[in-house]
């Protein structure tokens, strides 16, 4: 019974949202209500996630597990941010500077580390697997895309070289489209299996 109720709610919400594309004026209030509920639920999920993360780090500190220093640091910074955000408000210049001057450099540094790690990992692919068609294709495409996107070589768009460069730059699109077509076909097959009752995602009841 529980599963049937869940299925009814899910199907009704999906149908209403789909109908909102067709009867926008009539269903706009309902869609606004759904949107607000979704925002509310996302906010609650965020609070739960923060609480879970905080609990995990507090337990790590309490049990004196390995790396508890980082947990202590995280808890202190978290409390500092929360307290300053509540007391100063997000519109405070000090609070804005504190957030951006930490968040932007830290995230940018992480992206730099990711770039170097990807470079090293791609080298290890060749070291471990040797020269295979996959590794050759992967590394040659990485090299070509790096050179083309670096701007070191300029091509006139209407020239032959420019067209070749444009063709190469469309190759990721080809792969992505292939993946999307595969996903669409997979979704179609799954939908057909559900419609024909070959699969029952919500159980037998």
């Amino acid at each position: 019974m529980k599963k049937i109720l869940s299925a009814i709610i899910i199907i009704a919400t999906g149908l209403l949202t789909l109908a909102g594309y067709l009867f926008r004026e009539a269903l706009s209030p309902v869609l606004a209500l759904f949107t607000d509920w979704a925002i509310l639920l996302i906010g609650i999920a965020g609070i739960l996630g923060i609480g879970y993360l905080l609990r995990m780090h507090i337990l790590r500190v309490a049990k004196k597990q390995k790396g508890n220093f980082y947990s202590i640091f995280l808890i202190i910074v978290f409390l500092l941010t929360v307290i300053s955000g509540i007391t100063l408000s997000p519109q405070s210049e000090y609070f804005k500077d504190m957030i951006l001057n930490v968040q932007i450099p830290v995230e940018a540094s992480l992206l730099g580390v990711v770039a170097i790690t990807l470079l090293y990992t791609s080298l290890r692919v060749v070291r471990i697997q040797g020269w295979t068609p996959l590794s050759i294709g992967f590394l040659s495409s990485a090299l070509i895309m790096l050179i083309l996107n670096s701007g070191l070589i300029g091509f006139k768009p209407d020239s032959l070289a420019g067209r070749i460069a444009g063709f190469i730059q469309r190759m990721p699109v080809v792969g992505a489209r292939g993946i999307l077509i595969g996903m669409a076909l997979g979704g179609l097959i799954v939908g057909l299996r559900v419609l024909l009752l070959l699969d029952r995602p919500l159980g037998e009841d």
Partner: peptide, 25 residues
């Protein structure tokens, strides 16, 4: 541009200098 060039250079160097797997790898 220099960063992109260095990445290309490191890729090429890494591939040509040592392409045999060591024990750790």
């Amino acid at each position: 541009q220099l960063g992109s060039g260095l990445m290309v250079l490191m890729l090429l160097l890494g591939l040509t200098l040592k392409n045999r797997p060591d024990k750790d790898d």
